[in-house]
């Protein structure tokens, strides 16, 4: 007597036998599924990271320009020289400001989208957030260069609203000012802010979306007014999203080497430094040491965030 139900498909063919095998040995299936990505992560990603780290402990022979493959901290010493250290400070300050302002701008937008927007409005929200990501990064940065240029839209608007004086006053400030917005740190900042905003909004929105309405009602029920509810329930629960968003904006600003080249004063940012050191200058060890900086900074950032309990609500 056959155990198969009448009409059940007969078991033959190599594919069917394979699927039977996977059914009986799910771990084998899992191993097969995970091997390619793990190989990729292990070899291509972690491997190159290790190679990078190793390179940063080599040095360059000043006369021949050849890499000396011996352990030394000389390259890191070079990193701390004022010219190089300034680059690091400049980049970190820029990344921090972009992250801070990004968070401040993104939160209300994300909050509205998560708590109030429904149906069509929500679809429109996603569209508006994602739309910029559909066009080339370069096109958008160049567009901003035009907007911020001396003959650009911003100047035009300032002229016609009688705020030209304000704009000029801002541009005459030290550090943040410059000949025009497109040739100043302010311009670089604005473009970064624009570029990375979606990466801040979406994780915050996702984390707010997961806060059940009943939690907010419970806080109100127990005597918390809107402000208290926000500070004790909504904000802590959104914190993992804020941290995730800030990791994006912070890391993306730290590593970017195109935006400051197109919009901004001619001073270097970290990414540009890496680019010139490994390209024109051919100083791979210093380039490697420069690239280790954002990794270390992100490591510190994540550790501090974890200590402060940013991931407790995960």
């Amino acid at each position: 007597m056959s155990l198969a139900a009448p009409g059940a498909p007969t078991r033959d063919g190599p594919l069917r036998r394979l699927s039977d095998l996977f059914m009986r040995r799910p771990r084998l299936f899992l191993a097969l599924l995970l091997t390619p990505p793990l190989l990729w992560l292990g070899v291509a990603y972690l491997g190159s990271l290790a190679a990078l780290l190793a390179q940063s402990f080599f040095s360059i022979d000043e006369f021949s320009g050849l890499i000396v493959r011996e352990f030394t901290l000389k390259t890191y010493g070079e990193l701390l020289q004022p010219a190089n250290f300034d680059i690091i400070v400049r980049t970190v300050v820029m990344a921090a400001l972009v992250t801070l302002f990004g968070g401040v701008i993104a939160f209300p937008i994300a909050y509205f989208a998560a708590r109030y927007a429904r149906g069509r409005v929500k679809a429109l929200f996603y569209l508006l957030i994602m739309l910029p990501l559909w066009s080339s990064y370069l096109v958008r940065v160049y567009a901003w260069k035009l907007i911020l240029a001396k003959e650009g839209v911003i100047t035009y608007i300032a002229d016609h609203t009688g705020t030209r004086g304000l704009l000029d006053a801002w541009l005459s400030l030290p550090v943040v000012g410059g000949p025009s917005l497109s040739i100043s740190y302010t311009g670089t900042f604005l473009v970064f802010l624009y570029l990375w905003l979606p990466f801040m909004i979406l994780p915050i929105q996702a984390s707010l979306e997961r806060v059940p309405r009943s939690l907010i009602e419970a806080a109100g029920d127990l005597g918390a007014d809107a402000r208290k509810t926000f500070s004790t329930v909504i904000f802590p629960l959104a914190l993992p999203g804020i941290v995730a968003g800030s990791i994006f904006t912070f890391a993306l600003t730290l590593g970017d080497y195109i935006t400051p080249q197109i919009v901004g004063s001619s001073t270097l940012f970290l990414g540009q430094a890496v680019y010139t050191q490994q390209g024109v200058a051919g100083n791979i060890p210093l380039a490697a040491a420069f690239s280790v900086v954002p990794i270390v900074i992100m490591g510190i950032y994540l550790t501090v965030a974890k200590r402060m309990g940013a991931f407790d609500a995960l």
């Binding site: 059940p212 009943s214 939690l215 009602e217 419970a218 806080a219 109100g220 029920d221 127990l222 005597g223 918390a224 007014d225 004790t232 329930v233 802590p236 629960l237 407790d312 609500a313």
Partner: peptide, 20 residues
């Protein structure tokens, strides 16, 4: 009168405990 000014408290169907 908003919920936070009513001398009434609720045990929610899903308990609504603050996870953090």
């Amino acid at each position: 009168v908003p919920p936070y000014r009513r001398n009434v408290n609720t045990v929610f169907q899903d308990y609504a405990l603050f996870p953090h």
